[in-house]
Measured scan of single mutants.
Amino acid sequence: HEITLHINGRRVKLRFRDEKAAEILKEAAKKGLDEEELKKLAEELWR
């Protein structure tokens, strides 16, 4: 699955395995994680 989040006016595509991962990524984006941090988090969730 993929999700596209808008971060600092940019579109960031993240891959994720399940809905739980999608929710975690959305929450992290709301908390203000930047693009690099979100990509790292997405990679961690993928494993």
Score class of each variant (00 low, 15 high):
1 H>V: 10
1 H>D: 10
1 H>A: 11
1 H>S: 10
2 E>D: 07
2 E>V: 12
2 E>K: 05
2 E>Y: 14
3 I>Q: 02
3 I>N: 01
3 I>Y: 02
3 I>K: 01
3 I>P: 00
3 I>M: 15
3 I>G: 02
4 T>G: 03
4 T>K: 03
4 T>W: 07
4 T>H: 14
5 L>E: 00
5 L>D: 00
5 L>T: 01
5 L>I: 14
5 L>A: 02
6 H>Y: 08
6 H>Q: 11
6 H>N: 14
6 H>S: 09
6 H>M: 13
7 I>L: 07
7 I>D: 01
7 I>Q: 03
7 I>S: 05
7 I>K: 02
7 I>P: 03
7 I>R: 02
8 N>A: 08
8 N>Q: 08
8 N>T: 04
8 N>H: 06
8 N>S: 06
8 N>K: 08
8 N>I: 02
9 G>M: 01
9 G>I: 01
9 G>V: 01
9 G>H: 03
9 G>R: 01
9 G>C: 06
10 R>P: 00
10 R>D: 04
11 R>V: 15
11 R>H: 15
11 R>K: 15
11 R>M: 15
12 V>P: 00
12 V>Q: 02
12 V>S: 01
12 V>A: 01
12 V>R: 01
12 V>W: 01
12 V>T: 03
12 V>E: 01
12 V>N: 00
13 K>D: 08
13 K>C: 07
13 K>A: 06
14 L>R: 00
14 L>M: 05
14 L>N: 00
14 L>Q: 00
14 L>F: 06
14 L>P: 00
14 L>V: 13
14 L>S: 01
14 L>A: 03
15 R>W: 06
15 R>P: 12
15 R>L: 06
15 R>S: 03
16 F>E: 01
16 F>Y: 15
17 R>A: 12
17 R>K: 10
17 R>F: 12
17 R>Y: 12
17 R>L: 15
17 R>G: 04
17 R>N: 10
18 D>W: 03
18 D>C: 03
19 E>I: 08
19 E>Y: 09
19 E>V: 08
19 E>S: 11
19 E>R: 09
20 K>V: 12
20 K>N: 11
20 K>L: 12
20 K>W: 13
20 K>C: 07
20 K>H: 12
20 K>G: 14
20 K>E: 11
20 K>D: 10
20 K>A: 14
21 A>I: 03
21 A>G: 11
21 A>H: 15
21 A>T: 09
21 A>L: 03
21 A>S: 15
21 A>D: 15
22 A>T: 04
22 A>M: 12
22 A>E: 08
22 A>F: 10
23 E>H: 14
23 E>K: 08
23 E>V: 11
23 E>T: 13
23 E>L: 11
24 I>M: 10
24 I>Y: 07
25 L>G: 02
25 L>N: 00
25 L>Q: 00
25 L>I: 11
26 K>A: 08
26 K>I: 12
26 K>D: 04
26 K>Q: 11
26 K>V: 12
26 K>E: 07
27 E>N: 09
27 E>T: 08
27 E>P: 00
27 E>C: 07
27 E>H: 09
27 E>R: 08
27 E>L: 09
28 A>E: 07
28 A>N: 06
28 A>L: 07
29 A>P: 01
29 A>T: 05
30 K>Q: 14
30 K>V: 10
31 K>G: 11
31 K>T: 12
31 K>L: 12
31 K>W: 08
31 K>D: 10
31 K>I: 11
32 G>P: 04
32 G>N: 06
32 G>M: 07
32 G>Q: 05
32 G>F: 06
33 L>R: 06
33 L>H: 08
33 L>W: 14
33 L>N: 06
33 L>M: 14
33 L>I: 11
34 D>V: 10
34 D>W: 06
34 D>S: 15
34 D>Y: 07
34 D>E: 11
34 D>P: 14
34 D>L: 10
35 E>D: 07
35 E>N: 05
36 E>I: 10
36 E>C: 09
36 E>K: 11
37 E>S: 15
37 E>K: 12
37 E>G: 14
37 E>D: 12
38 L>W: 03
38 L>N: 00
39 K>L: 14
39 K>M: 14
39 K>P: 01
39 K>A: 08
39 K>S: 08
40 K>A: 14
40 K>T: 12
40 K>M: 13
40 K>R: 12
40 K>H: 12
40 K>W: 11
41 L>A: 02
41 L>N: 00
41 L>S: 01
42 A>C: 05
42 A>Q: 04
42 A>W: 04
42 A>T: 03
42 A>I: 05
42 A>L: 05
42 A>E: 06
43 E>C: 06
43 E>F: 06
43 E>W: 06
44 E>I: 10
44 E>M: 10
44 E>K: 10
44 E>T: 08
44 E>V: 11
45 L>H: 02
45 L>Q: 03
45 L>N: 02
45 L>C: 02
45 L>D: 01
46 W>Q: 03
46 W>R: 02
46 W>M: 06
47 R>E: 14
